[in-house]
Amino acid sequence: MIENSTRFSFGGDEHLLCECSEEMSLQSFFKSLSATTRIKQLGIPGVVEVCGGNAAYLVRFNPDEIHPDDLLERIKEIDEEAAKAEPVVETRITEIPVYYQDPWTAETMKQFRDRHQTPESTDLEYAAEINGFHSVGEFIKAHHESPWFVSQVGFVCGVPWLYQMVDIERQIQVPKYVRPRTDTPRHTIGHGGCFAAIYAVRGAGGYQMFGITPMPIFEPNEPTTYFEGSMVFSKPGDIVKFRPIERAEYDEIVKLSEEGKYNPPIKEVIFDLREFNKNTDEYNKGLVEKLYDI
């Protein structure tokens, strides 16, 4: 029997925090995803919104319509069911092109060098070294070789948090900047803790900067074709495969995006956590083959 250990705590009179586990794991993410999906489907009167987290979820409610105690009881039941749900999702795998070692994040890096752990090296050099890689090239390869799970969406304007789909021992981990930057280029591929993130808009940030994508993930005005009508591209549960590109292709994709003509490869897939855990590398290989029709 699976032990259900979600911790519940009220965030004022309008929120209920449900923490599936203190530490990050795909199992906790799947439980959060399953619970949030279920709560949305049920349309419980008084539930205003559900925000999924990496290993938690947050229910926003209107206490005029549902008493906090009644809500807690209801959510606990759903959470119990979510703990027993099969760890299988119907989702999609999408490619996101990345221009590693680009000139824009390099410029920003220079500006904020005094806030970094090792002002004398670049973010990539630092990350490669502390993760035991012999070169930046090797590190970049590890970064794009395996797919990533979108385990949370939010912060501002649909920023995806991405969790690397490899064994914990092989996951890239880096601390955030010693003091956060006041600026980060739009579309920067960042990394903090075990998570990658894509900065949807320009702004402050503390994640290490590895590169930049030409592909928009937030469009407040005219939703881009591949956004499926939303302002925000990413969805929790998406699988992402980074593909390294050079300057010429970067420029080309930026141009196509501006004209509304860019369409990244996207394929629908079914992800089964149990199969994934049996043989991670093989399973990932299969996912990538589906993405590219190999």
């Binding site: 586990s21 203190e22 530490e23 990050m24 987290g53 990496n54 939010g154 948090w161 075990c194």
Partner: peptide
């Protein structure tokens, strides 16, 4: 906890 970060005020990023 895994994924939270070393600072005692860090949590695994959440809502």
């Amino acid at each position: 906890p895994f994924g939270a970060g070393a600072d005692p005020s860090n949590i695994v990023d959440s809502a």
